[in-house]
Design a protein around this nucleic acid. Structure first.
Length: 270
DNA sequence: AAAGACACCTGTCCGC
DNA sequence: TGCGGACAGGTGTCTT
């Protein structure tokens, strides 16, 4: 479910309810997420939230000593709940604030995670080897071009590799490749610096625009207020197999690349 | 080092 | 109505 824009939207939703408030309790209803929720999360109790931020698709809740790391996996979401809101199906964890409200983690497929870090989260094993943030100055066409030299795998897999650049998931990979006219199966090492320039710009643009729209809702994504995102209606190729290309009118095709559905226009993308 | 397959799990949709 | 199969936004891990 959540790609980077959805995670960013979630971050902006929870931050005002957490920053400057103390955590009263971390109530774990079901600890069996992707990794078992560690017992250390109780160390959050009684601590004030210094800040909330995002690295790749991980949400980091920074406390006075240590902090929480949250990943939404494929189907996870966070919602702000009041003290009287009864938990629903798949509501696995509540982070109860001293305000009485809580940040409630729901995840039907349980591919998400709630972890504890003790210090320097950016050096955590899950974060330390990740590539640059796509919306930061460290990301560019030149970066993609340099890393791609000699690589024979499909460019779509290349841009979805978190060691190359973080935050480009299956929806926005298809979208950005369409926007830059690059065929998703093309070997990454056989794309010019000029075309990588266009691809990097497309990645920035599509992510920035989706964040402004509150993320993409395909099935069940809701932000922390329980509202959907509005980017789905602007998708150019994703889940549009057989529909006419907005640019040339030919039917959009679907092809499995790296075990993921990929959508592209065979005449606009080469 | 790079690339590919597979794993984790639940829900939904479609054809028979 | 039920059942089986395909498919779904991610990513760590294992094998070639």
């Amino acid at each position: 479910m959540p790609e980077l824009p959805e995670v960013e939207t979630t971050l902006r939703g929870i931050a005002p309810h957490m920053e400057g408030h103390a955590i009263a309790e971390v109530a774990v209803r079901n600890p069996s997420l992707r990794w078992p929720v560690p017992a250390e999360v109780v160390r959050a109790e009684g601590q004030e939230v210094i800040g909330c931020r995002r690295r790749a698709k991980y949400l980091l809740v920074e406390l006075e000593r240590g902090g929480l790391m949250i990943h939404l996996g494929m189907s996870g979401s966070l919602r702000i709940c009041g003290p009287d809101d009864a938990p629903r199906k798949h509501d696995h964890v509540d982070i109860v604030m001293d305000s009485g409200r809580c940040v409630r983690f729901n995840d039907p497929r349980r591919f998400g995670a709630l972890l504890w870090w003790e210090e320097r989260p950016d050096e955590h094993v899950l974060l330390r080897d990740l590539g640059p943030e796509p919306l930061s100055g460290d990301f560019s066409g030149g970066h993609l071009w340099r890393l791609s030299r000699g690589r024979k795998g499909a460019v779509k897999n290349f841009i979805m590799d978190g060691h190359v650049v973080v935050g480009v998931g299956n929806i926005y990979a298809s979208e950005a490749l369409f926007m830059s006219g690059i065929h998703p199966s093309r070997p990454a090492g056989r794309i010019s610096a000029t075309r990588y320039q266009a691809l990097a710009l497309a990645i920035r643009d599509v992510l920035t625009h989706a964040i402004r729209r509150g993320g993409t809702t395909l099935r069940d994504f809701v932000n922390s207020e329980g509202n959907p995102g509005y980017f789905a209606q602007e998708l150019l190729v994703y889940e549009r197999e057989g529909h006419p290309c907005f640019q040339c009118g030919n039917p959009i095709r679907r092809r499995v690349i790296g075990q993921r559905s990929s959508y592209y226009c065979p005449s606009c993308q080469r």
